[in-house]
Amino acid sequence: MVGKLKSVGIIGARDVIRSLRTPMLVTMSLVQPIIWLVLFSQIFRNLADTFQFRRLGYSSYLTFLVPGMIVLSMLFTALQSGMATITDIDTGMMDKFLISPIRRSGILLGRMAADAVLMVLQGAIIFGVAFLMGARTKTGWAGAVLMLGFAVLFGLVWASVSNLIALRTKNSEMTMVAGLLLTLPALFLSPAFFPKTLQPGWLQAVAKANPAAYVIQTGQQLMNFGNNWGQDLRTLAVIAGVGLVLITATVASFRASAR
């Protein structure tokens, strides 16, 4: 048997190389959040001058928007994770993995490790763009790293969802459509674009059930106000809870389909 860590390393390295060889895919996940970042921070700049928004104390609309756009890029990358799994199944690569003496868990974990690497890169790039546009983090570099950490962890949970759909449907179109169907509400039913307290009550209630909302709001807190350990822990608990359920389901689905 090939060791567990080595298995994850082999698959992970291969998946990272593969993604970087398809720069279109990597840029796609970057371009949209960056366009939105640039566009929306201009369109809604005056929003920050309204009494209601100013009262909430955000530094600017840009600093308010950054966490949502970082999460958005994680979601896009996560969507590609399931697609890549389908590709591997279709091309026979998955069979090659499965007949080799590497650990079964390494196949899925390796893919997620690769996702994490890409997500860190993308988050850093988007943060860099925002920084160049003048966005500054109240909590400094530590806060930025914490924000990115939450976003990546959440991105991995989403990658697990994408893989779960992929393994269930075995169909790349379905994986893409179902993934998008989940991604857009995750973004819009959150304070990504519009402050939570200014949203109608029912939307706020829905956002409570949306893990993305926790991650985005924690990011906004870190960027604009300061660290709140209580909120950090709650967000971590939400990610861990949702992650535990979804990753378990994905692993089970993988095991069931591997043989």
Binding site: V2, R14, T91, G92, M93, D95, K96, S100, P101
Partner: peptide, 22 residues
Amino acid sequence: ATGVDDDLTGHENLFLQGFLHG
């Protein structure tokens, strides 16, 4: 189905398979 990774070169594909098999 040819289990060949299109994004890797032939050389890299062989190495990948090698690593998979220890």
